[in-house]
Amino acid sequence: MPFVGLAQFFARDVPGLAAGPGGADLVQLFRCPLAHGPYLERRYLLKWRQAAQTERADHFLAAAPEVPLLPWEAELPEPCVVHPEEVDTYPWAENDTLPAALIARIDAWDDAQTAEGGRDAPSYQGALSIPPGWRVGGFPSWASTGPMDITCASCGAPMRLLLTAGGDEMDPDSHSWMPLEDRDPSLQGMASIRGGQSVAQPTRLRFGRDRDLHVFTCPTDPGHPPHWVLS
């Protein structure tokens, strides 16, 4: 069964994109359209290429490979173009991802914001530290699993986050990341989104039960197998 293409990124378009094996500057993410095993696991493929060689290829498929009839719309991506934007991000604040004293200050600030602003008050995790949706580099969000140590199975080195794939570009806890052109300034929270679901979920994809797919690679040798985490 052919894999379905989910995304591709060129190093020339994404500042800070880690180079692949042999200096590869084009990374592509694929997913098998079917689930496997008793736990309905998904199989992913990370493919590195040399952009210059790819763009000079003599043969391209006239049409994308056909996939079987799937039960859920969210199994296939909605074609769209990525417009990268650089933002500052900060680590998830839990366990030892930050000094304990700093996490305590963050928790106290969150509590004060909630007491003053109620449901739509900003929080460190949702509104300030890590944006939702698709992103390259930065820090992983650990909303579902809690922080995890990710090490390379080949050499034991701590792995770094290459990219994150998410179903939603905005949600009730992170509407502060919403682009200004998609926001109604007279409204608050999710109600302020212009364009509805097509803006909030541009790729139409889902990962697990509304989780993020984190793709980690080895900084010592990018040729080592990547590691996948749903969180």
Rank of each mutant, 00 (worst) to 15 (best):
V4T: 14
A7I: 05
Q8C: 07
V14Q: 04
A19H: 07
G23D: 11
A24R: 06
L26C: 11
V27K: 11
F30G: 08
R42P: 03
R43Q: 13
R49S: 15
Q50F: 11
A52R: 13
E55W: 08
A57Y: 06
D58P: 05
H59G: 10
L70I: 04
W72D: 12
E73P: 08
A74H: 13
P79W: 06
C80A: 13
H83F: 10
P84V: 04
P84C: 01
E85Q: 11
E85T: 12
E86F: 02
V87M: 00
V87L: 01
D88L: 15
D96R: 14
L98R: 14
L98Q: 10
A101N: 08
A104V: 05
A104H: 13
R105L: 15
W109Q: 14
G117V: 07
S123C: 01
S123K: 04
R135N: 06
G137A: 02
G138Y: 04
G146K: 00
M148H: 12
P158H: 05
L163C: 03
T164S: 10
A165T: 03
D173I: 13
D173T: 14
S176G: 13
G189C: 00
I193D: 06
Q197E: 15
P202R: 10
G208Y: 12
H214Q: 06
P225H: 00
